[in-house]
């Protein structure tokens, strides 16, 4: 069948079942927006991950009473440790400078602290930051060591929130996908009933099964794609509003970029079109005799 003739039949059918088509488009759009949001939250987790792996080091806070010999021995051990890529010593004054820089937006906090309150430390760049636990067990409790901190662990709550939001978004998307399937099923049933005369004629004149089914699948795929376009618009709007404006000035960790958005947009458009067509094919088995 010619593409033009096929498209004409599919679009006419969409227009005739306008109310059902709109319901399908809205449901698919919500489902795909949630799916896209889940994908972007995952991208955000990866972005934070990459940032932490690049930047954050394990920190060995030193006891104020540490002797010079103990400190030198510790430094020598750290430099010899294969887990440690680089070691930097930060004295109390430098620690205070960094503290003032990190909390420059909170002068009340800075005014309550002075250099003596902050420990000197060894700041470590690790060969593999995921093995920070081994550093902690290896150096905690040594003479002159106050405590060993894995900076990455500090962000565990953030990871937990991102993970929970991602799972939540995917779960809601799955529920919406069920609703979308029910609606597409109904749309195909209504459409097959409305076009039963047409499909009967198609069968009689020798149209192939594929040709008879194609307009229905196309109708559903177009509805899915339009839903996908709305979802894509929502994701782009979300990126512009939240990432580029609302949270543009926060510096705790970087936010996902446009590459993640385009990947999510491509994902929702593909899933929207493909899954809607597949759902229509399933519904056709039940409602269209060929």
């Amino acid at each position: 069948m010619r593409a033009g003739a096929l498209l004409a039949i599919g679009l006419t059918s969409l227009r005739r079942n306008l109310a059902t088509s709109v319901a399908v488009i809205v449901t698919v759009a919500i489902c795909l927006t949630l799916l896209g949001a889940g994908l972007l939250l995952r991208a955000q987790a990866h972005t934070v991950d990459g940032f932490l792996l690049d930047r954050i080091q394990a920190v060995i806070d030193l006891d104020d009473n540490i002797s010079g010999a103990e400190r030198d021995a510790l430094a020598a051990d750290l430099r010899a440790d294969p887990l440690v890529q680089a070691v930097r010593y930060e004295d109390k004054a430098q620690a205070f400078e960094r503290f003032r820089r990190d909390f420059r937006n909170s002068p009340d906090i800075v005014s309550g602290v002075n250099a003596a309150d902050l420990p000197a430390s060894f700041r470590l760049t690790l060969a593999d930051p995921r093995r920070a636990g081994e550093i902690i067990t290896g150096y905690a409790g040594r003479d002159g060591v106050d405590r060993v901190r894995d900076q990455r662990a500090l962000l565990a709550p953030l990871y937990r929130i991102l993970d929970a939001c991602t799972i939540g978004a995917f779960a809601l998307a799955a529920v919406q996908a069920l609703a979308a399937f029910a609606l597409i099923y109904t749309m195909i049933r209504v459409s097959a009933h409305g076009r039963r005369r047409e499909t009967a004629i198609m069968r009689l004149v020798g149209a192939t099964n594929g040709t008879i089914r194609a307009p229905f699948v196309l109708e559903s795929a177009v509805a899915g794609m339009v839903g996908g376009l709305f979802a894509a618009a929502a994701l782009i709007a979300g990126k512009i509003y939240l990432v580029d404006h609302r949270f543009a000035r926060q510096t705790a960790f970087p936010l996902f970029g446009w590459d993640a958005v385009w990947a999510a947009v491509a994902g929702v458009l593909l899933v929207g079109t493909g899954a809607s067509a597949a759902m229509a094919s399933v519904a056709l088995r039940r409602h269209l005799r060929v």
Partner: peptide
Amino acid sequence: RLLADRTAAGNVAFAMDVT
């Protein structure tokens, strides 16, 4: 068994289009 929303020519063309 004609399609009411197609002309005489449209009904005949339909059989050719779908094959």
